[in-house]
Amino acid sequence: MMKALSAIYTIWYRNVLKYFRMKSRIIGSLGMPFFFLVIIGFGLNSAIQVPGMQVDYVEFIAPGIIAMSILFSSMFSGVQLVIDKQIGFLKETLVAPVPRLHLMIGQALGGATTALMQGILVMIIALFIGVNVPGITGILISLLFMFLIGLAFTSVGIAFASRMEDTHGFQLIVNFVLFPVFFLSGALFPLDRIPDWLSFLTYIDPLTYGVEGIRYGMLGVSQISPVLSFTALGGFLVAMLLLGSFLFNKIKI
């Protein structure tokens, strides 16, 4: 048991260590969420009234933008696995007396942790530009959903990366998936009063439940009940962890 934890911790530690070493990447990836929040949030603040909720538009999208930064950061963290294949470091870990499942879990937790930190930075920005400070319970609920989003989509990233050999290909594929997942998630618009076809797509998008969960934590109100959000996102997380482990286990060197 201790040995399992030690290997998982080691892989997690390496990911976090590398994250803190790349300051430019931390700052750089805050750019897009910041502009989304400030320009779209404040730009459309006066034009849009969110029906059924007593909140400003900028407050409405803040959870969506936090979810976005976690989504991007976690999916792209899979690129580390592709790089590890290229620089040979993956071989070093595969020849260690550690089951592959532990390596995969460590990698997933590492990616999720760095994504969560990215999300927390965006949350701090949101609080600074005037989104109301939620209570301590609210923050904890938000953090829980943020972490679940991070872990689930890091697993998706690992699943893709397990099958890919070059970083450019990985980035193209991830971009192809990222944008529909983000725009269909209800991060930017309310879920009712939209056409049925769009509503359908929104409800099958797993990120929708993540955004709604954070929304409940930060604003105290949401369109989907937090219990349902937690169940849906949790189910998706388990499925993606299984898929990621399965594909990681099949990597040949």
Partner: peptide, 25 residues
């Protein structure tokens, strides 16, 4: 020691050794 390098070049020599030691418990 493989034919092709398997070091993490973004880490220091000590960190590469340390991660190896941790992986082997």
């Amino acid at each position: 020691v493989f034919q092709d390098p398997t070091l993490d070049e973004e880490l220091t020599a000590r960190e590469n050794m340390d991660i190896h030691g941790r992986l082997y418990g």
